[in-house]
Write a protein that binds this DNA or RNA. Structure first.
Length: 377
RNA sequence: GCACAGGUGACCGAGUGGUUAAUGGUAGCAGACUGUAAAUCUGCCGCUCUUAGGAGCUACGGAGGUUCGAAUCCUCCCCUGUGCA
């Protein structure tokens, strides 16, 4: 059996749902912390569980380069390797086609990367990416796509989109071909599922077409990719709307790489079920914290003697125990604990925001959630 | 006391006649961060004015001097380090 998705309540276009995988349920709308290299940076797995993360994201490209899929397979798969018993979604490496643009060459066959670690050359194809993700043991496998750069001419976006569609087909074929080859632990059955990815740049009609043609391939879920690449927010919303028009309502819909707290609330209210973003974790390590009052930079001089918690309205372990003055001290002193505590807070803020969103959808009214939890940029 | 070596902006440390308010670091102040090449990157960082461009002032231990022009050359003095007495 493959993982499946069920919807429990709706509030307008927003849905309260549950994604079932071999590693437990994921209540949606869900925020997915990014754990690129087999770790959500700065946070131990047990704390991640305490924060309420039900799913995390791993990255095929990074784990492939180091420590390598065969090593992870030999150690029992990514879940066991990193001691994470809940759901894992792996990104295919498609985003690295974008972010490592100076280190790769794209052809129809796939993408040739020069490793950012040691300069060696590696070929990623839809087949290879899919196989690696299967070997890693990801619960949700992402199709290998090209995250198109922005801005881009329409013809360039169309070509890129067409290639992503062909790569989606190849990913799907590879997935169907291999998915019974790997049997993990006590589950006794292969229970991974594959999501397709909608592209189409900043052209709404291309977004719709990409969605239609991706849906024709019948994936377990659908992602909307190629966003948060420098476009204005209104445009992003427009592209998400265009794709959501087409994507089936009975499958999970996942917007990749977003966003600020108020953004994820907004997208959830539009009917998006899953979102991931490095922002809360990266920003935390850089001293930027999200609070009910907006964002704050903990390194600011004005917090040097501030004995109050980061966010008086926050229920997280960091806010209930440590002062702004102490957190500032840790950050300014470059103490590793600064990154740990800051990340714990930011992730709690995101995950708690999603809990509020789910609660509101359950009550049938999302109206208060946006303003109540939003941390404006 | 003698001999070397030095004294540069908050600190460390380049510069050895003009393009030098003075390279780089550090510290400080602020900003950015969206499927993580990110515990990273960017800006500011002598003082006073200015709407911008900019203007004025002060500054390379101290005091003199040479020169059109000195952190840079000369003289004397003060101080620091090392070595010898």
């Amino acid at each position: 059996m493959a993982s499946h998705f069920s919807i429990q309540a709706q509030a307008g276009p927003a849905r309260l749902g549950r994604l079932h995988t071999a590693h437990g349920g994921v209540e949606t709308p869900a925020f997915i912390p990014c754990g690129t290299a087999g770790t959500v940076k700065a946070v131990p797995q047990d704390i991640l569980e305490d924060l309420g993360a039900q799913i995390i994201l791993g990255n095929t490209y990074h784990l492939y380069l180091r420590p390598g899929p065969e090593l992870i397979r030999s150690l029992g798969g990514l879940h066991k390797f990193m001691s994470w018993g809940r759901t894992i979604l792996t990104d295919s490496g498609g985003f690295q086609v974008f972010s490592l643009s100076g280190l790769r060459k794209v052809t129809e066959e796939g993408v040739q990367f020069r490793s950012h670690l040691d300069g060696t050359t590696h070929l990623f194809t839809p087949e290879r990416s899919t196989e690696i993700q299967i070997v890693l043991g990801a619960d949700v496998v992402m199709a290998f796509d090209e995250c198109t750069e922005h801005p881009a001419e329409r013809s360039r976006v169309r070509d890129s989109m067409e290639m992503t569609l062909r790569w989606a087909r190849r990913s799907k074929d590879a997935f169907d071909r291999h998915k019974h080859e790997v049997v993990w632990g006590n589950h006794g059955a292969q229970v991974q599922s594959l999501f397709g990815i909608v592209q189409g740049g900043m052209y709404a009609d291309l977004r719709r077409e990409s969605a239609e043609r991706t849906v024709e391939m019948n994936f377990a879920g659908y992602a909307i990719g190629g966003l948060s690449v420098g476009e204005p927010r209104e445009q992003r919303v427009e592209m998400i709307s265009a794709a959501l028009e087409i994507l089936p309502r009975d499958r999970p819909r996942y917007v990749m790489g977003v966003g600020y707290p108020d953004e994820i609330v907004q997208y959830a209210s539009m009917g998006v079920d899953m979102m991931d973003c490095v922002l809360p974790t990266r920003a935390a390590r850089h001293g930027m914290l999200f609070t009910s009052e907006g964002r704050m930079n903990i390194k600011n001089q004005r917090y040097a003697q501030d004995q109050s918690p980061l966010d008086p309205k926050c229920g997280c372990r960091v806010c209930s125990r440590y002062s702004r003055a102490y957190l500032r001290h840790l950050f300014v002193s470059a103490e590793p604990l600064a990154g740990v505590l800051n990340t714990m807070h930011n992730l709690w803020f995101y995950l708690d925001t999603m809990r509020s969103v789910r609660h509101a959808i359950g009550l049938g009214d999302l109206s208060g959630t946006l303003s109540g939890k939003a941390s404006l940029a």
